[in-house]
Computed example of a mutant assay.
Amino acid sequence: VLYRILQNPELIDELLKEQQETIETAGLDPNGKSNEVLTYDTIKGMVKLDSVCRETMRLRNRFYDLLHTNICGKKVVLSNGTIIPPGGDVFINSWYNQRSNIWEEMHIDGEDRVEFKPFRYLDTGYSSSKISDDYLVFGKGKHACP
């Protein structure tokens, strides 16, 4: 995240301003000279920083495939007729998934998905720790680990 911010120095002032406003709104000392700590709710108020974090992680994953194993004990038939037997593995191309334009129907900015757009996720309801079909950084399903 720091690397992306340094690549885009125009973000620094905007993120700093958001941080200062959020801290003041929470009634904390903006100079950090008290024993008060940031709460989860205070940090959630930094929506621009959160969007930068989500966009950074979306573009900078180190994995290309996300392995899923059929553990249900019976075959699974996909809509295209592909059969996944019990114990069979399915690999999801997460690199493509997080960069393709298939997410326009979710009302997420699907254009230029290969470009870094720091505020892509503002006002979408998708925080950096919320998994979704277009954001597999933490996996998917009940074993997702945000």
Results as ranks from 00 to 15, higher is better:
K33F: 03
L16F: 08
Y126C: 02
E10Q: 15
N101Y: 13
T124D: 00
Q7A: 09
P85D: 06
R120P: 04
V76H: 11
L28S: 03
V1F: 02
L11C: 05
G81Q: 00
C53A: 04
R60F: 14
L78A: 10
S34K: 01
I43H: 07
K17A: 14
H68K: 10
G81W: 00
S94L: 11
R62D: 11
L6N: 15
I84Q: 06
K33W: 10
V52H: 08
V114Y: 15
H68F: 14
N97R: 13
S129W: 07
N31H: 04
P30E: 03
Y3H: 04
I71S: 08
V90I: 11
V52A: 09
E55G: 05
V52M: 14
E104Y: 06
D50H: 07
N101Q: 15
Y135H: 15
D134T: 12
E36N: 15
I92G: 11
K74H: 04
T124H: 07
G45L: 05
P85M: 00
P86S: 00
S132N: 14
G73T: 10
F63A: 00
G27L: 02
L122H: 08
N97S: 15
V47P: 05
R60I: 08
I23C: 11
D13E: 15
Y121V: 03
L59R: 10
E105Q: 09
V114R: 15
N8F: 15
I5N: 13
I43N: 12
E105K: 03
R58F: 11
V77F: 12
V114S: 15
V1I: 09
F119I: 02
L67Q: 07
D112I: 01
D112L: 01
